[in-house]
Amino acid sequence: MKTENIKHEENEHSYTGLNSKKLLMWAFLGSDCMFFAALIATYLVNMGNNPPGTPFPEDVFSIPITTVSTFVLLMSSMSMVLSYASLSQNKIKAFRVWLLSTVILGATFVGFQIFEFYEFSHHEVKVECGDLIDASKREKLTDLQVKIGDEKCIEGVKKVSEKVPLTPQVNLFGSTFFTLTGFHGGHVTFGIIWLLSLLIYSFKGNVSPLNLDLAALYWHFVDVVWIVIFTVVYLFGVFPGY
C-alpha cells in the first residue's frame, strides 16, 4: 500500500511514459544553459576592455594548474556515473564508495578554485630585466610585465616585481571572471551538498536510482559547463591572438 501511496505523491501518471522529475531536471538544465550563456557572453563582450596596468588573463592564468583541476572534475563525473551504475545493479557498497569519491573530487575542484582565487587576488608580476632587452624574449612578455619592467628596471637590477592583485573590482576581466567562475563554483558546491545528503540518507533509507540520477544529471551538467569555461575563458583567454 505504501508504495502505491508514494506513487500518488507527485502525480506519477505520465502521458509520455517519462518520469516527471527527470523531465523537470532536463528542462532546468536547458534553462541553466541560458544562465551560463549570459554570464559567458558578458565575459566575452568585455574581453580587453581593461584599463592598462591591471592584470589580464595572460598575466594570472596558469594553464597547467587549471588543466589539472579540469581533469579532477572530469574524474568526478566518471565516479558519479559509476556510482549510478552500481546503484542500478544494487551494489550498495560500491555505490557509496563512488559517491564519496565524487564528493571528494568535487571538493578538490572547489579547493583548486579557492586556491586560484587566492593566488589571483595576491598576484605578483615578476620580470627578468634581461628579457626586456632581448627582442625575442620581450615579445613573449605580457603588456603588464613590459610596463612594470620598463618602469622599474634600472642599471644593475636583475629582477623586479610588483604586487598587482586581480580583484573583482580592479577591472572588467576581474568582475566577469570572478562572477562566472564563482557561480560555477557555487553550482559545484550545491552539487556537493546534494550528493552528501544522498550519501547520508543512504544509511537511513533507500536512495532510489532515480533520485541519484537526478543529482547525477546536475553534476554532469556542471562538468560540461566547465568544459566550455576551460576552453573559452582559460585557453582562449591566454591565447596571444587576442
Partner: peptide, 12 residues
C-alpha cells in the same frame, strides 16, 4: 529539451 536551451544559448 536540452538542445533547445543549448542552441538558443549559443545563438544569443
Amino acid at each position: 529539451i536540452f538542445l533547445a536551451g543549448l542552441f538558443l544559448a549559443t545563438l544569443v
